[in-house]
Amino acid sequence: MNSARITGTGSYLPEKVLTNADLERMVDTTDEWITERTGIKERRVAAEDETTCDLGEAASRRAMEAAGVDAGEIDLIIFATTTPDRVFPSTACLLQERLGIHGSPAFDIQAVCTGFVYALSVADKFIAAGGVRNALVVGAETLSRITDWTDRSTCVLFADGAGAVVLSAAEEGGILSTHLHADGAFKDLLTVPAGVSSGYDQVRSGEAYMHMKGNEVFKVAVNTLGSMVDETLAYNGLAKSDVDWLIPHQANIRIIQATARKLRLGMERVVVTVDRHGNTSAASIPLALDEAVRDGRIQRGERLLLEAFGGGFTWGAALIQY
Rank of each mutant, 00 (worst) to 15 (best):
E42T: 02
R264V: 01
R133L: 07
F158W: 15
A106D: 13
G100L: 10
D230I: 14
G8I: 05
V156L: 08
T91H: 03
V270A: 00
L167Y: 10
E268Y: 02
K213Y: 11
G199R: 14
H211S: 12
S198F: 14
D290E: 05
V196T: 15
G174N: 11
R254Q: 01
K41A: 11
E216A: 07
V45A: 02
F116S: 05
R5F: 11
S60G: 03
A59E: 09
C53M: 11
D290G: 01
E172Y: 03
L289C: 01
L95N: 08
A58H: 09
T81N: 02
G103Y: 12
T52R: 03
T9N: 02
A67G: 10
A119I: 09
S281P: 01
A66C: 08
I298A: 00
S205Q: 14
F107M: 05
E24C: 04
R61S: 05
V45Y: 07
F158E: 12
K262N: 08
E97K: 15
A169D: 08
N215C: 05
E141D: 12
F158A: 06
V156F: 06
R37E: 13
R145I: 10
V87K: 11
N2Q: 10
E73Y: 04
E268P: 00
R86P: 00
G173Y: 13
